[in-house]
Design a protein around this nucleic acid. Structure first.
Length: 811
RNA sequence: GCCGAAGUGGCGGAACUGGCAGACGCGCACGACUCAAACUCGUGUUCCUUCGGGAGUGUGGGUUCGACUCCCACCUUCGGCACCA
């Protein structure tokens, strides 16, 4: 009798052997089709989380499967190693961020190795490595050359806890909190670097050739927020232009006032002397409010008349100009025409301040709208009225006809507006890639020449969370010379958003040691694009949109090819604590993967994580449920060691062969579809069948089934599969074997259970040979005793026969 | 308010193209093994039942011989966006 299954013994043994043999090295091989499998790289926070296992081990299983299917698979891993936690740890514990980060990486690599994943560690890339961030800086320079990186003064989001600006994407939720620390952000007016992601807004909305989940694409589309409309130029009595954006140009004749955002540059000019005090007070009050207060939708509208008037270009009407904080400087032009009859917000404002409401779209079947008595803005249905030359136009055509009219008269044109803002990449923190720019008194903003890259971070630094970059206070670091005139100049002291580093890491993996460029073109030509990408959906409007933008911008510079970096993307859900809450140290509900591995072994943890959840949904850790997987692997272990000795029974052997092929079929399908839970179920079923037929099958049939089972298990539970494979004296390694071939003929049932229904209710189940004709099935169904009783001499109205499934007799 | 996803036993979940609802597990109950317990193995496990059957996949309708699956309306939960003009 064989030994007991002891994962603690076999797992490290095989991990060491695989590593020593370079089993998972992937190199260019033109003779085989390539497959680039990628899973999001972790931040080196210190310890591997069970969530990392949940994300990585199914991706690993699928990469292994592709390899067994004959693909040359690249499955690399690295670290998104710049970022705030390192710096915060440094401040708290007085450890250098570099030291903290690299120590964490060492630890996490060790932990990852215990997963038994097929990562090719030769390709590891670490974004905080100067060899890496040199190229991050190089990409910045390329974007700058291309006009896609620019500097501007703007109202930006600032996290008062992390002491840095944030991109719009990194401010979350209704209460506008920092994505990293949850602190409500405030507005600051600062000069910052931006990437022109808005240039790619339209292209980012097309998802051509992408196999990405609908949900992710919807999140991105909503985030980009394309809206079609028109821009129309109004002008003040003094002749200054006021450009507005509207999605409802058809209501232009119903504009009874204008509203500017309090920050609008023209406010200063339009305000009359007698209104100045009131206007200044309002602006001052608006400035003091938080975004949450200001953007709260259910708040009563406030505003103030400026004393100035604008002329409506379509009817030369003079309308008052107000300022109000419901108009945002950051969207459109920061100015609107107000049409209270057809816009609910304008309506509320008009009622608040007793301004005219003038309907210009009338539903002919409804009561005639009366501006004075309406109690809400009217729907966009009917015909245009009171609209000069466009009166009588059908509402359906009103928008396009008005745009044509405006364009003809040069008063405006059709325009598209986006919610998406340019990507703010400046961070006032130390632990990031320095922005490679220099400021010279005479030559202005100058890029650091490529041959001077990387602009290295100094090691000797003072961590003071001051709200300005620590690099600014370094005694010498920022002092340099102007690359153009050679006079003394100053370096940019802000560092880059770490999402910049992760926008191109999939390229660095191709050749992490390459020094001539960010990547080796030969590797690129062979491996790119990424075939399968997996990660969390929380990155839908951050990393996943940035990396698409980055790829497209690089494509336009001739650096990358194709329109998208990642062809297929799938997102995994999240593992919660046993209490159903998000795992956190303060809640004390954290499941430590090391502990689980010590208790049960890596294979069990891997299989449990795949078996227990719908992968894309996740759910709470269920301490008891892991027992099912523990029992399964022990059972496989003893069954394989026991083997069989007796004579085989033909029908039992046939049943086993059938089950094997059915399992090959369903496991293959489910692994393609990322349905990992049913893969493990199917493998358990095959194990149950083996157990049932153990005393009835001969050695040849048994071995064929076990051979298939171990191959099918190899991607899921790589260690036990390898150990049992070796125990059966099969050639090393199970992981370089071919995936078993599915034979539909072998999977076919000889007999089926025919369900007999009467009026749709199951009355009998009869066993019949597979492949009988409809007439035979019908006859056999009618011959059933149970059926005869129910039919009771009546003539069926209709009999439906579904081949191989059921007969339904309708009375 | 807008956009999206999801609602199935005590629990995690399965059901491929409209065709046996509850696969595979957990848990539980009973039995075997054991001095005993754990492990392991076996049997049972949606609910109701007069043991004939009846009801049942968030709710209410509809289409169909037949609906977890398709259509309409609604409810709940989760995620995202939100005075976006």
């Amino acid at each position: 009798m064989a030994s007991k299954y002891n994962p603690a013994e076999i797992e490290p043994k095989w991990q060491q052997k695989w590593e020593a043999d370079g089993l998972y090295h992937s190199d260019i091989d033109e003779s085989r089709p390539k497959h680039y499998a990628l899973t999001m790289l972790p931040y080196p926070s210190g310890d591997l989380h069970i969530g990392h296992w949940y994300a990585m081990t199914p991706s690993d299983a699928r990469a292994r499967y592709m390899r067994m299917r004959g693909y040359n698979v690249l499955f690399p891993m690295g670290f998104d190693a710049f970022g705030l936690p390192a710096e915060n740890a440094a401040i708290q514990r007085n450890i250098h961020p570099k030291e903290w980060t690299f120590a964490n990486i060492d630890n996490m690599v060790k932990q990852m190795k215990s997963m038994g994943a097929m990562f090719d560690w030769r390709r590891q890339a670490i974004s905080a490595d100067p060899d890496y961030y040199k190229w991050t800086q190089w990409f910045f320079l390329k974007l700058y050359e291309k006009g896609l990186a620019y500097r501007k003064k703007a109202q930006v989001d600032w996290c008062p806890k992390d002491n840095t600006t944030l991109a719009r994407e990194q401010v979350k939720g209704e209460d506008r909190v920092c994505d990293r620390c949850g602190t409500p952000v405030i507005k600051k007016e600062l000069v910052q670097w931006f990437f022109k992601i808005t240039d790619y807004a339209d292209e980012l909305l097309t998802y051509v050739g992408m196999d990405w989940p609908e949900m992710i694409r919807t999140l991105q589309s909503n985030w980009i927020g394309r809206s079609e409309g028109a821009s129309v130029t109004f002008h003040t009595e003094d002749g200054d232009d006021i450009e507005i954006f509207t999605t409802r140009p058809d209501t232009l004749w119903g504009a009874t006032f204008m509203v500017l955002a309090p920050e609008h540059p023209l406010v200063e000019k339009v305000v009359s002397d007698e209104r100045r005090a009131a206007v200044d007070a309002y602006i001052e009050a608006a400035g003091r409010q938080t975004d949450i207060e200001r953007e709260s939708t259910d708040r009563e509208k406030t505003g103030v008349f400026t004393g100035g008037y604008a002329i409506n270009p379509v009817n030369d009407e003079k309308i008052p100009i107000w300022i109000a904080d419901y108009v945002l400087m950051s969207y459109g032009t920061g100015a609107i025409m107000a049409v209270p009859a057809h816009d609910q917000r304008d309506f509320e404002f008009a009622r608040q301040y007793d301004l005219e409401v003038r309907p210009v779209i009338q539903d002919p079947d409804a009561e005639t709208l009366d501006g004075a008595s309406m109690n809400e803005a009217a729907a966009h249905y009917g015909q245009m009225v009171n609209s000069g030359p466009l009166t009588g136009t059908d509402a359906d055509e009103a928008v396009s006809k008005t745009i044509a009219y405006l364009e003809k008269n040069q008063q405006g044109q059709g325009t598209v507006n986006y919610r998406l803002r340019d990507w703010l990449i400046s961070r006032q923190r130390y632990w990031g890639a320095p922005i490679p720019m220099v400021y010279c008194k005479t030559c202005g903003v100058q890029p650091v020449p490529e041959d001077q890259l990387p602009v290295l971070l100094p090691d000797d630094i003072e961590w003071r969370p001051t709200g300005e970059s620590p690099l600014k206070f370094h005694p010498t670091w920022k002092q340099t010379t102007c690359p153009t005139c050679d006079e003394p100049a100053e370096r940019e002291t802000d560092t880059m958003d770490t999402f910049m580093c992760s926008s191109w890491y999939h390229l660095r993996y191709l050749s992490p040691d390459y020094t001539e460029g960010p990547f080796d073109q030969r590797e690129y030509d062979y491996w790119m694009p990424v075939d399968t990408y997996t990660g969390g959906s929380e990155h839908a409007t951050m990393h996943l949109i940035y990396t698409r933008f980055f790829h497209k911008a690089l494509r336009d510079m001739g650096i990358t090819e194709g329109h998208e970096p990642m062809i297929q993307y799938r997102s995994q859900g999240q593992i919660l604590g046993p209490d159903g809450q998000r795992m956190s140290k303060s809640r004390g509900n954290v499941i430590d993967p090391d502990e689980q591995v010590a208790n049960y072994g890596a294979d069990t943890v891997r299989a449990y994580l795949m078996f227990g959840y719908r992968w894309n949904e996740g759910g709470p850790w269920m301490t008891e449920n892991i027992q099912g997987v523990v029992r399964w692997l022990h059972r496989v272990w003893s069954l394989v060691h026991e083997g069989v000795s007796g004579e085989g029974d033909a029908s039992a052997e046939r049943a086993l062969e059938r089950k094997v092929h059915q399992t090959i079929h369903s496991v293959s399908r489910d692994i393609e579809e990322f349905e990992f839970n049913t893969i493990v179920s199917a493998l358990m079923e095959l194990t149950n069948t083996l157990q049932e037929v153990q005393s009835q099958v001969g050695p040849a049939a048994w071995d064929a089934a076990v051979d298939a089972l171990l191959r099918l298990m190899a991607p899921i539970t790589p260690h036990i599969a390898e150990e049992l494979w070796a125990a059966l004296d099969k050639p090393y390694s199970v992981h370089t074997q071919a995936w078993p071939e599915y034979d539909p003929a072998a999977a076919k049932e000889d007999e089926i259970t025919l369900v007999v229904q009467i009026n749709g209710k199951v009355r009998d189940r009869i066993t019949v040979p597979a492949g009988i004709s409809e007439a035979e099935a019908q006859a056999m169904a009618l011959a059933s005793e149970a059926v005869k009783q129910h039919v009771d001499g009546q003539t069926p109205k209709k009999i439906i026969v579904i081949e191989g499934k059921l007969v339904n007799i309708v009375l």
